[in-house]
Amino acid sequence: MSIQHFRVALIPFFAAFCLPVFAHPETLVKVKDAEDQLGARVGYIELDLNSGKILESFRPEERFPMMSTFKVLLCGAVLSRVDAGQEQLGRRIHYSQNDLVEYSPVTEKHLTDGMTVRELCSAAITMSDNTAANLLLTTIGGPKELTAFLHNMGDHVTRLDRWEPELNEAIPNDERDTTMPAAMATTLRKLLTGELLTLASRQQLIDWMEADKVAGPLLRSALPAGWFIADKSGAGERGSRGIIAALGPDGKPSRIVVIYTTGSQATMDERNRQIAEIGASLIKHW
Rank of each mutant, 00 (worst) to 15 (best):
I206P: 01
L223S: 06
V258Y: 01
Y95A: 03
W163Y: 12
D231P: 04
G154L: 05
I244W: 00
H110Q: 09
P25N: 09
D33L: 12
L218T: 04
L74I: 07
L137Y: 09
E164K: 01
G239I: 00
R189N: 11
K109I: 11
I283K: 05
R176G: 06
I171H: 15
Q4S: 14
G242R: 00
I11A: 11
S128R: 00
T69K: 01
S2Q: 13
G142Q: 04
C75N: 02
T126R: 07
N98I: 13
V78C: 05
E119T: 06
H94V: 13
E169V: 12
S51D: 15
T267K: 12
L135R: 04
M268F: 11
M209Q: 02
A222D: 09
A246H: 04
S264T: 12
T112Q: 15
T262K: 08
L55C: 08
L188M: 11
D129N: 00
T138A: 15
H24I: 10
D231V: 04
L146G: 03
V8E: 10
D99V: 09
V21L: 07
L49C: 08
R162N: 10
A23N: 06
H156A: 14
L188E: 01
A16L: 14
A276D: 05
M66R: 00
I283N: 03
S122L: 15
I244C: 09
D113S: 13
A266F: 08
T193R: 15
A245C: 10
S254I: 10
L47R: 03
A185P: 00
F13R: 02
P25Y: 08
P65V: 04
D250E: 14
S240P: 01
H94L: 13
S122E: 15
L191M: 14
A77Q: 14
G142V: 01
D155V: 01
S96F: 12
D155R: 00
L282H: 02
W163Q: 09
N152C: 11
S281R: 12
A170T: 08
H285Q: 10
M209L: 08
T107I: 05
Q86I: 12
R63Y: 07
P249R: 09
D33Q: 15
G239W: 01
D177P: 01
L79R: 01
K213I: 11
I259Y: 04
M115I: 07
Q204V: 11
H151N: 15
L150E: 02
T126F: 03
F6K: 11
T27C: 08
P65Q: 03
I275H: 01
V31Y: 01
V117L: 11
T116E: 10
R273L: 13
W208F: 07
T107H: 01
A40S: 10
T27S: 07
P143D: 03
P224Y: 04
W227A: 02
K53D: 09
P12C: 13
V157D: 15
A77M: 11
P105C: 04
P65K: 04
S201F: 04
I171F: 13
H24A: 15
E237Q: 14
N272A: 05
A123R: 01
H156L: 12
D48A: 08
T147L: 07
R59F: 03
A276C: 12
S96L: 11
D231W: 03
P25A: 06
D212T: 06
I93Y: 06
K71N: 00
I256Q: 01
R241C: 04
H24T: 15
I54C: 09
Q88R: 12
P172Q: 12
G226M: 07
T112I: 15
A200S: 14
G154Y: 05
A133V: 02
A123M: 03
E169I: 10
I171L: 15
A215R: 04
K213T: 08
A182I: 15
E102V: 11
N130E: 01
G154P: 04
S104I: 02
G263S: 07
M66F: 09
I54F: 11
G263D: 06
S264Q: 06
A276I: 07
S201I: 02
Q4P: 09
L196E: 13
S281W: 07
I206A: 14
V72E: 01
L188A: 08
D36A: 15
Y103G: 06
P253C: 11
E169P: 05
P253N: 09
V82E: 05
E102S: 13
M180E: 15
T112N: 13
I45S: 06
E277R: 12
L28A: 10
G76W: 05
T138V: 15
A23G: 13
E87F: 08
L47N: 03
P181E: 00
Y260C: 04
R176F: 09
K144T: 14
T112A: 13
K71H: 00
S80T: 11
A245K: 00
T261A: 09
M67I: 07
P105R: 05
R7D: 07
T267I: 09
M67D: 10
G114H: 05
T262V: 05
D250P: 09
R202T: 14
D161Q: 05
D99P: 04
Q203N: 13
Q204N: 14
N134K: 04
T178P: 00
S254V: 12
A123H: 03
I93R: 03
K252H: 13
A245W: 01
I259G: 01
N168S: 08
M1W: 01
T116A: 07
T198W: 04
M268C: 05
V31R: 01
F70M: 14
C121G: 05
D99H: 08
A182R: 14
I244N: 02
T193W: 10
L137Q: 05
L223H: 03
T147G: 09
T138M: 13
M184W: 01
I11R: 05
L218S: 03
V257I: 10
T179H: 00
L28I: 03
R189Q: 14
R241E: 03
K30N: 07
E195L: 04
P60K: 15
T107K: 01
A40C: 08
L111P: 07
L196Q: 15
K232C: 01
N168V: 06
M67G: 13
E169Q: 12
S57W: 11
R59D: 02
P217H: 10
N168Y: 03
A182D: 10
Q86C: 11
N98K: 14
R81A: 10
A182Y: 14
P105Y: 05
T139F: 06
S80L: 11
R189C: 12
K252V: 14
T126K: 07
T107N: 03
M127D: 07
R271L: 12
I45G: 03
N152L: 10
A182H: 12
M67C: 13
H156F: 11
E62R: 06
P249G: 05
D113W: 07
T27Q: 06
R241P: 00
Q204K: 10
D99A: 10
D269C: 11
G226W: 06
V8L: 14
G242M: 02
H5V: 08
A133I: 00
I256S: 01
K213E: 10
T116Y: 05
V82Y: 07
A215H: 04
T107A: 10
F70E: 02
P25M: 10
P143R: 03
D155M: 01
C121D: 00
I283G: 04
L10H: 06
G52F: 05
L199K: 11
W286G: 02
L10W: 07
E210F: 10
G194L: 09
Q4C: 10
A215L: 02
L160D: 02
D174A: 05
F149E: 07
N152G: 13
G90H: 12
L49D: 02
L28Q: 08
L10I: 12
A183R: 09
L282M: 14
T138S: 15
M67T: 10
R59T: 02
M268Q: 08
T262L: 07
T262W: 08
M268G: 07
I256N: 01
D207C: 10
T261N: 03
G279S: 10
L135W: 02
A16K: 06
P217T: 11
G248A: 03
N168Q: 07
E26V: 10
I93V: 13
I278V: 09
L197C: 05
T158H: 01
G248C: 02
S221W: 09
C75F: 05
L218Y: 02
R176I: 05
K109T: 12
L28K: 09
F64H: 01
I256P: 00
V21H: 05
L205T: 03
A84D: 12
E56I: 05
R7F: 09
S104Y: 03
G248Y: 01
